[in-house]
Amino acid sequence: MVDKIVFFAAAAACLAGAVGVIWSKNPVHSALSLVGTLFGIAIHFVNLGAHFLAAVQVVVYAGAIVVLFLFVIMLLGVDKAEQLEVDPLGGQRPAAAVVAIAGVALLALLAVRGVQVTTGESSKIAALDSGPSNIVLLGRALFTDYVFAFEVTSVLLVIAVVGAVVMARRAPKDEVSAQ
């Protein structure tokens, strides 16, 4: 019973945040609504027993990514309201709404029908109820079965950092003209 109350509270936070991201005219309000969604998802993770991911969700998403968004908004000074009344492409919004409703219907149908036909081997990597805590299981899986993928993500992060630095740097010509 408590689980269900928590589910509905967190789901309301998620959906209100998602609607806020789309409907806010000011990008700052969108970013703050995004925090609501991310916290709601973190609560769902706790409810589903993924405690480590819930902590990472709050630290990485709400703590780092949203702050990065707000930082960029403030840096660029684009925190003024966007004109939402005009539809630059005629009929695009009704078409987008139809696509979204069809998407919800299709995905929800798959979700409702899909649970009964969930295929795949149960407890292939490590069973959640096998004894060790969630974080122990996750760490073991990460450094045994998924160690190659883990190393590849480290390469990906290095590439992303190098790319960001190269993009943010001014070209040498600009430096000369700035002096």
Partner: peptide, 18 residues
């Protein structure tokens, strides 16, 4: 599915999103 694999994938999705 009572398996940790899905949570490992979410971990990777977080890294790629960052």
């Amino acid at each position: 599915l009572n398996d940790i694999g899905g949570q490992v994938v979410v971990f990777f999705v977080l890294v790629v999103a960052a």
